[in-house]
Write a protein that binds this DNA or RNA. Structure first.
Lengths: 211, 211
DNA sequence: ACTAATTTAAAACAAACGTTTAAATCAAAC
DNA sequence: GTTTGATTTAAACGTTTGTTTTAAATTAGT
């Protein structure tokens, strides 16, 4: 029964190759060879290469976003129930932990994360907008919560700082590939737990900076 | 005499299209049409598309890096002359201001900045390493200075925080293209001066965060 | 065992790519 | 004015791309 998991084999190979080489540089011929399926299988199952990209995105992003939304909504509910502003580090962890946890779950997940980190600034409208539309609800809620947590800051400043944070996160996530710039004699802990902690530490302080 | 500035016309068009559509998606046919030159002119003047990419990078990066290195070196010298650690905001401004200033200098410069922001995480080794090699000396000196400015922090933590900063900067620089995620009723000041200030404010606080 | 949905194989498709070639054109030196 | 060398031009090169098509082989479900 090599045929029921054909779609999954394609998605896995696409995730891997898209992450390693990008969408453009990955041809359907490499991809189907890596997946061990026929060249025509992609167009048969997904219709086109672009639809395959959408499917690769959606398979991971939908559950990941659902988790983030739930945690953010919980924070919002309990904060408004107790009549206090939400806590910043709590907000950040709700957004970040699912990503870091998922990233630790395997090589495929790691590939996926570096892929979406790049999709954020993809020059092609189709790819970037596809990704942005998926992230938008999370982004909106995150922005809303941060504004409540930082009531003394103008909203447009919160907005910029939120984007600084997103850039820092995207870069940290895709850094495994580009670690050429490591100064001599520097031992890097790649432990994801402490990386998440350090990240929250850094960003929380930045967000709370006085004007 | 439309032939003496052919190289410049190609570089300008390449800078614009590479920034807007990426290296892969920009064909030499679009590029030469945009530049108003013959298709073969690229291979005649630059040898190949990859050499053209190098030239586009180098034309702006070399003077930009030179400026950054000079300012950073000045900070290092005067700090060691006065026997005190360098100031963090001073360091950040030395690195950031040339970029923001250059970015304000025109549309071509703006295109270029979003281009190199993307080159940082380019999936193709050739493009990414080309860029990293150009940035490396600045990165090293920046890291060295930050370690001196933050003597209480372990070096690997300084390293991570430096990378958070770089990610935040790259994202902020390429954000002009992707501003789809703007919440309703939010007025964004795109004034580069205040953006640089806000950026330094954010990053300086993040860098100085307690463990 | 019949039907319908997959999978494979091999081939071909038009389109676009980077690159190369050879002739035409130009600027300047003699 | 002619020659020389650098530049521009138009056309073609060979490859690769995503996609489609053909047919045969395989599988799953009623």
């Amino acid at each position: 029964m090599a045929h029921t998991d054909t779609k999954k084999r394609i998605l896995d190979a696409a995730e891997k190759l898209f992450a390693q080489q990008g969408f453009y540089a990955t041809s359907l011929r490499m991809l189907t060879k890596e997946a061990g399926v026929n060249l025509a299988a992609v167009n048969y199952h997904f219709g086109s290469k672009e639809e395959l990209i959408k499917a690769v995105f959606g398979r991971r992003m939908l559950p990941l976003n659902k988790m983030r939304l739930e945690r953010l909504q919980n924070i919002k509910d309990s904060a408004s129930a107790e009549g206090r502003p939400p806590d910043i580090k709590e907000i950040l962890l709700a957004f970040i932990e699912p990503t870091f946890e998922f990233r630790k779950s395997g090589k495929g997940a790691q590939d996926f994360i570096s892929m979406i980190s790049r999709a954020f600034s993809d020059p092609r409208d189709t790819v970037r907008k596809l990704f942005l539309n998926m992230v938008e609800p999370v982004f909106q809620l995150l922005f809303e919560l941060l504004c409540e947590a930082l009531p003394s800051l103008p909203k447009n400043i919160v907005y910029w700082r939120l984007n600084f944070m997103i850039g820092a996160m995207a870069h940290a996530m895709s850094m495994s590939q580009m670690c050429q710039l490591i100064p001599d004699g520097l031992v890097l802990k790649v432990d994801s737990v402490s990386l998440a902690e350090q990240f929250v530490n850094f960003v929380a302080n930045g967000l709370e900076a006085p004007l």
